[in-house]
Amino acid sequence: MMTLICSIVAGAIAASASIIYASLGETISQRSGVMNLGLEGVMLVGAIVGYCTATATHSLGLSVLATLFAGALLGLLFAFLTVTMRANQAVCGLAMVMFGTGLSGMMGKSVSGAATFTGFSKISLPLLGNIPILGPIFFNQCVLVYALYILVPLATWWMFRTRTGMRLRALGENPAALDAMGMNVFAARYIYVIIGMAIVAMGGAYITLAYTTAWTEEMTSGKGWIAAAIVVFALWNPAKAALGSILFGLIEIVDLRLQSMGIPIPSYFLSMLPYIATVIVLIVSTGNFGKRYNRMPAAIAVPYDRESR
């Protein structure tokens, strides 16, 4: 029984890692005031870039770098459109999905679906991996997951406990205030969107480099949308987003197991939960003024225009 639970939880963590990357990157972007709904597209591009680089160079390190670079480029494009050109962010995000899907599909045609390289494999950490229960769950994962163990707490700590993190949060709340203080709002948003998208791209690469080491079209299969939902659901907090992702990963895995055991649960309705939950959270956080510090960054999706006063 214990081994079953352990394997389920461990599986959930491994399964949700790509969403955790994506939601982390998008949280950073949204905290700065830029909402990019095109995560699906960015992840796909990240996935294919990582896969192709790995196929070509057989170097996982280079693949990661290439992915980050590709994500950053897409971030640059998005920032240019939304910050400088002040385009409507929601629609831009959709365009990004289309563009990313198309681009990755095209690049994907030139490689075979089965990997010719060895991806990140699970490594059991010495000592830590031997701890009963916790060991098999947490310390028998691949490097990219271990990276998250550092990244997520680090990002959360940074966002809420450092000076620059504070500035990020202020950026999404009231860019006019920062502008009056002399900060370059536009440059700052560019930076955070670029960083954010680079991380989102890693979410896609995780799938092709570690989780399944294969390439099929549309392999992110909606993970980008779930990540977008989770960012809101977690109220723009990276640690909570990670937990949310794992929670939904758990639901998915438990559901699969139950199905395979022949217990009829309409799994589709379970899968609807992240989306419905997000809407509910949105309603509660918008309407409820008691805990205003939990609500959406006030300046999100509003292009900053110094002249409009």
Binding site: L94, A95, M98, G102, S104
Partner: peptide, 13 residues
Amino acid sequence: QQMCDMLQGAILF
């Protein structure tokens, strides 16, 4: 064929 998606996205951009 995916060029079509790319084109749509680019037109919108």
